[in-house]
Simulated assay, not measured.
Amino acid sequence: MDMERTDVLVDILRHLPPRSLAASRCVCTAWCATVDHHRLLRADLLPLSLDAVIYEKAVMDAPILFSRRSTARYITSRLNYLEEDPAYGEYAGEKDHCNGLLLIQNDVVVNPATRQWARLPPLPCACSWPTTTMSCGRCHHNRYLVYDPTMSAHYQVFFIPRIPRDVLSETARTTEWPPSSYAMHVFSSETNCWKQTSFAREGDAAGTMEDVVS
């Protein structure tokens, strides 16, 4: 590829969003070399090498981590570097994971590659119980991690309340789910706080509250 054509290609690639730019590296060897040589991808957000991968073998089992032999010593599934419990096993109490980050019990977000971790602040409880020693069942294991390193170095955690068990049967049969408008608490690592956020449903409802409960 001559210099003039390379300059034109680089100028075009610079205008692509990070996700499309990452996909462009797979077109051919020349495109991959062009993207890497000119450092068009933000290396701090999207590393150019794959050192490990997390995958789920079964829904009820903890995820499994595969790492290269050269990186297996420091990218490990053991979390014994966490302060509160040096005896942590492999992904103990894992709630969710997304693009290399883990959300584990006690609301801790961990990056196994860097061994950095952070605890989420207390969640504004959505249930009506007066103390934290009792639970209505709506606040258990329903936090979901969202992280896209091609877009931002920050992550979010969504708290999605479950449908109360004491909903009247007639209400459950006639109320669509999810509703057209729904408010949830969302944590952002950028602000380090939870914020109640309203969401609008796209398309038709999946069913009724009764369908979900049953």
Rank of each mutant, 00 (worst) to 15 (best):
L9W: 12
A22C: 15
P17C: 13
P179E: 08
Y182W: 11
K57A: 14
T174L: 04
R165N: 05
K57G: 12
M1L: 12
V109Y: 00
A113T: 02
N111H: 13
A52K: 01
A58M: 14
M60W: 13
F66N: 08
T208L: 05
T191A: 14
P164N: 05
N192T: 07
G207S: 08
E83C: 02
L45Y: 01
E84T: 08
S198D: 15
V146P: 04
A58Y: 11
S67L: 14
R14H: 03
A200I: 09
M60K: 14
A92H: 12
N99T: 06
A43D: 13
Q156I: 04
A205R: 04
N99Q: 08
D36Q: 09
T197L: 13
S198W: 15
R69S: 09
Y88K: 02
A23W: 08
P124W: 03
R5E: 10
T171P: 00
T150K: 04
F66Q: 15
P149C: 03
I54W: 00
S67R: 12
F66T: 13
N192P: 03
R143S: 06
E90W: 07
L123F: 03
R68C: 12
L65R: 01
D166Y: 08
L145I: 12
T197F: 10
R42F: 00
M3E: 11
G100C: 05
K95G: 07
M60T: 10
C28K: 01
C127V: 09
Y155L: 14
T175A: 06
S20P: 01
L50N: 12
L46Q: 07
Y155C: 01
Q116H: 12
L101H: 00
E202Y: 01
A205T: 04
A72E: 14
P17I: 03
E56I: 03
M60S: 05
L82K: 03
M134H: 13
L40M: 10
V213H: 04
T76S: 10
A183F: 06
A30D: 00
A153T: 15
E210H: 14
F199E: 11
